[in-house]
Design a protein around this nucleic acid. Structure first.
Length: 659
RNA sequence: GCUGCUGUAGCUCAGAGGUAGAGCACUCCCUUGGUAAGGGAGAGGUCGAGAGUUCAAUUCUCUCCAGCAGCACCA
């Protein structure tokens, strides 16, 4: 038999018969390793201990200590174990797929009866029994026809469909632990007992479409999380609790920022506190955009369908638009809505986006090449009839305002405008507390309009722009819009979640459809390009992100109530008002709290309310004209002169662009 | 939109076929207290909406609305 040489991570090579398995190699190294081993990496590929090796290779044997491999195998085998547990408890359940995902796995089942939260406990218990049986995992490669027949005989139609979808030349690997069988490419643990039985948890039940297709069967999905050990599971569950504390819906209520109610689903009722954040942010963006060479405009909300038909949105997005039927015969005088005259009814749509209106502004009057690039910005209030299931607090809403702008320019201005925008956006993100962001560059999709030359040119322009400002990007081939490539900008929040906020899209299509043109230097009419761009996306969503990122403890300049001045004794009330007045004169949003409560009570309440600074004043402060300053999240206080504090807080309250 | 769950006081939640309860918040009184809840009293609810079953429905059934989780969607 031919010999092969296997090189271990320490550089030592050993010689084996071809076809040796990692299990045998581990056994050869040491008995204890053989017992602890869970899998191997062979020439960079994750390898089952039972799979033969035919050629000279680098090999590393893994144990539960190797986090990446351990997590994958534990989660993977738990998916199978859970599927078996479910089928043992409810034998009529059909199995489908169960992949490993971040932090755990899921498995989709087809069963008539819905799973209940109590069922999760039952399943978990059964899973632990299976783990304790320590049954060996075995796999075999089967012929396709045999596997299909097997699943047909066992009434598992989803598996048959899966096999049909696997390319013909790939071997089908069958998996067993005990008598229970599944289709799976592996690799796997040696036996079920290698799964740490105390470091997984079933989390939730949810619906999911078969193969992700909303026209197909709805299955029941069970999610689980699993880790190498109990401590890591605990840490994960703790992290989930921490994330829940940041929920903007909860903080929005606690901080009295906004509310929503069923008469206006997906739309925000902003309260004074929340609207303060909103207007601060909007004022900030307005100043930045003005400085950045944009002209601010404002366009109508209710626009005749003709414009949407012309722009192409009617065809594609009609069902996602709020429509308004207007009976022109009423002419504002006839209050009887039932008297609607069909012939004179016009259909309007609430604008779901601003771009067609911006082209209308561009189209007024003749434009010269000297007017370009023309940067039109609007805090555009849009309405989209989002599917009910998509709504989520103020993050995904039906009524929102974008920090939108469209740049009309010539082809050879695209690169410059793109570079300019990236710098602009980087500056804004930095000032808003997000030092870093990722650029994803989406290029031409399969279905597209325009010539190859023009795609080449525009894609190059974007790529050169990114390079010109010295940034990296992630390429997303084929993800561009049908009319042009785009850049999306992602920022990472304090707990590692990634949010797409900014965007930059090149669009030669809409100017064409809506007949935009300018007179070029040659005296002829030309089509401008249109660049769609936004930094924050929508104010609603971005404020949601800010709230969650800061856990409600917003930067001072954005905090709705920046300072509360609290009296310790009612004899200090007059002084409290004096302090508040001075702070307000210095541009600080300050409030008085002279309620008949102890200072402990006031401190607690305003801490819970995320007020960044509490100034407490009692007899001493009144006499010395000082304040006792306490910052949110800190325990210690410091007594300082009123004038010094007023000055310092006045500076702190200044938006970053005005410092 | 789909699957499942939920909807009771401002908030968080308990409850039961015979028209409701707690804690916090709120109002008033006592207390003037030095940095995360001082004490007492009071007020507050067509139990998401509509229909059905029943002598009787907030409780059971159905429909609708909204919310939550996930899926699908996200110009």
């Amino acid at each position: 038999m031919a010999q092969i040489s296997l090189t271990l991570p320490d550089g030592n090579a050993r010689s084996y018969d071809a076809g040796v398995t990692p299990a045998a190699v581990a056994e050869d190294i040491s008995k204890s390793l053989a017992k602890k081993a869970i899998s191997a990496t062979v020439n960079g590929k994750h390898w089952d201990l039972q799979w033969p090796i035919d050629q000279d290779s680098d090999i590393a044997i893994h144990t539960l200590q190797d986090e990446e491999q351990a997590n994958e195998l534990i989660r993977h085998d738990l998916a199978h174990i859970m599927a078996r547990a479910v089928q043992e408890i409810w034998p009529d359940t059909k199995v489908t797929i169960g992949p490993v995902i971040k932090d755990g796995w899921y498995y989709d089942f087809d069963r008539k009866e819905p799973f209940t939260p109590e069922d999760l406990g039952l399943i978990e218990k059964k899973m632990k029994e299976i783990i304790n049986k320590r049954e060996p995992v075995t796999t075999e490669v089967w012929e396709r026809a045999r596997a299909v027949k097997h699943y047909e005989d066992n009434n598992e139609p989803y598996k048959v469909e899966l096999i049909d979808a696997i390319p013909g030349d790939e071997p089908l690997r069958m998996y067993w632990h005990g008598d229970w069988q599944d289709l799976c490419r592996g690799p796997h643990l040696q036996h079920t007992g290698q799964v740490p039985g105390d470091s997984f948890k079933l989390m939730s039940i949810a619906g999911a479409y078969w193969r992700g297709d909303s026209s197909r069967q709805m299955l029941q999905r069970i999610y689980g999380v699993a880790f190498q050990n109990k401590e890591k599971l605990k840490a994960h569950l703790h992290m989930l609790e921490e994330a829940a504390k940041r929920d903007h819906r909860k903080l929005g209520r606690e901080m009295d920022l906004f509310h929503m109610q069923e008469e206006a689903p997906g739309q925000v009722f902003w309260h004074p506190n929340g609207w303060t954040i909103y207007t601060q942010l909007q004022d900030y963006m307005r100043r930045k955009q003005r400085a950045g060479g944009y002209s601010e405009i404002n366009t109508p909300q209710v626009v005749d369908r003709k414009l949407w038909e012309a722009s192409g949105h009617w065809d594609k997005y009609q069902h996602h638009m709020f429509l308004v039927e207007v009976d022109e015969s009423r002419d504002g005088e006839n209050d009887d809505a039932s008297a609607k005259n069909k012939d004179q009814t016009r259909i309007n749509a609430l604008k779901p986006m601003n771009c067609p209106c911006h082209v209308q502004v561009f189209n007024q009057g003749l434009k010269s090449y000297r007017d370009l690039p023309l940067r039109l910005a609007e805090f555009g209030s849009c309405a989209r009839f989002e599917p009910s299931g998509a709504l989520h607090g103020i993050m995904r809403v039906r009524g929102f305002t974008q920090d939108d702008a469209h740049i009309f320019c010539t082809e050879d201005q695209i690169q410059e405008e793109c570079a300019r925008f990236i710098d602009f956006l980087a500056d804004v993100y930095k000032e808003l507390g997000f030092d870093d962001f990722e650029i994803r560059f989406a290029t031409r999709p399969e279905k597209r309009v325009g010539t190859e030359e023009s795609w080449d040119y525009v894609e190059n322009a974007l790529e050169n722009a990114i390079k010109a400002v010295g940034r990296d990007y992630v390429l997303e081939p084929g993800d561009g819009a049908f009319y042009g490539p785009k850049l999306d900008f992602y920022l990472t929040d304090a707990i590692g979640r990634v949010w797409q906020c900014g965007t930059f899209q090149v669009d030669p299509n809409l100017p064409e459809r809506l007949g935009a043109s300018y007179i070029a230097a040659d005296g002829d009419k030309h089509r401008p390009f249109m660049l769609h761009r936004a930094c924050l996306g929508s104010f609603e969503r971005f404020i949601g992100i800010l709230i969650e990122n800061h856990e409600g403890k917003l930067p001072f300049w954005l905090a709705p109530r920046q300072v509360v001045v609290a009296s310790i004794t009612s004899e200090a009330d007059d002084y409290v008002h004096e302090v508040v007045a001075e702070l307000q004169a210095a541009g600080v949003r300050a409030e008085a709290d002279i309620r008949n409560e102890k200072i402990n009570y006031k401190v607690r309440e305003h801490s819970v309310g995320k007020v960044p600074v509490i100034l407490a004043v009692g007899h001493r402060e009144v006499e010395e004209r000082t304040v006792s300053l306490r910052r949110l999240g800190e325990k210690q206080t410091s007594v300082q002169d009123l004038s010094a504090v007023t000055k310092a807080l006045g500076i702190e309250a200044t938006p970053p662009d005005l410092l």
